[in-house]
Design a protein around this nucleic acid. Sequence first.
DNA 1: CATTACCTGCAA
DNA 2: TTGCAGGTAATG
Length: 274
Amino acid sequence: MPELPEVETVRRSLARELAGRRIVGVREIGWPRTIAAPSPDELCLALCNRVIEGVDRRAKYLLIRLDNAETLAVHLRMTGQMLVVPADVPSDKHTHVIVTLDDGRELRFHDTRKFGRWWLLNAEGLAALESKLGHEPLESGFTVEALREGLRGRRTKIKPLLLDQSIVAGIGNIYADEALWLAQIHPLRTADSLNEAELVALHAGIVAALDQGVTRRGTTLVNYRDANGEGGENQHFLNAYGHTGDPCPRCGTPIERLIVGQRSTHICPVCQVF
DNA sequence: CATTACCTGCAA
DNA sequence: TTGCAGGTAATG
């Protein structure tokens, strides 16, 4: 579910609610596999009485900074939600971790499909995570040159490469389709077949698609919510993703759906010629 | 490369 | 009942 714009929206809302809060304890871990490392017991001990200094994001990871130089890294995967609610709000069977805060509220991890994961990382663990991730596409280091370098020598299809987090970090299935539609590039084109103008257009398409997603506070198709339970609005502004059969907003040709790299993919067959 | 696994819910 | 879903890791 959540890609960069959704995770960034969660980050902003979480930061507002959590910055400066002290963790009283971990009240419940209903699905222990959520805690990837260390063990659930160790996590409870480590979080108790820690103060949350801030919430950052890297790629699709939320990074909750603690006052002992450790970081709670959270990946929402498909259906994860990080919700901050008063302790008396009832929780349902999909709430898998409950952290109690010093203001009478709780941080709750809600995750229908149970794919989301938490890791408690020290500086070394964070460095290991960082080493696997490519450019942050909304930061100044993500230039056309950086994209060209990331794709250099790759003879595989461009769409799976956009989903490869070690090249550009944070793009998922929705924004990959949107970026390619904006750039008017067919998802089956190989990276090494793109000319300079197409690379420039792809770079601009990635930035524009993600930037619009952040501005609209994310795309809520089904599950995505921010820390306050609010959905986003970007679902009303998608051009290609999920629009099979609808007219292309640019040329009117019906949007087509195909499978690329085992992922559902949406294109305008006229604007995005192979 | 592709396939399978991890999970649940929902629509066809 | 089957297939599909915004993600990723592991395995042929």
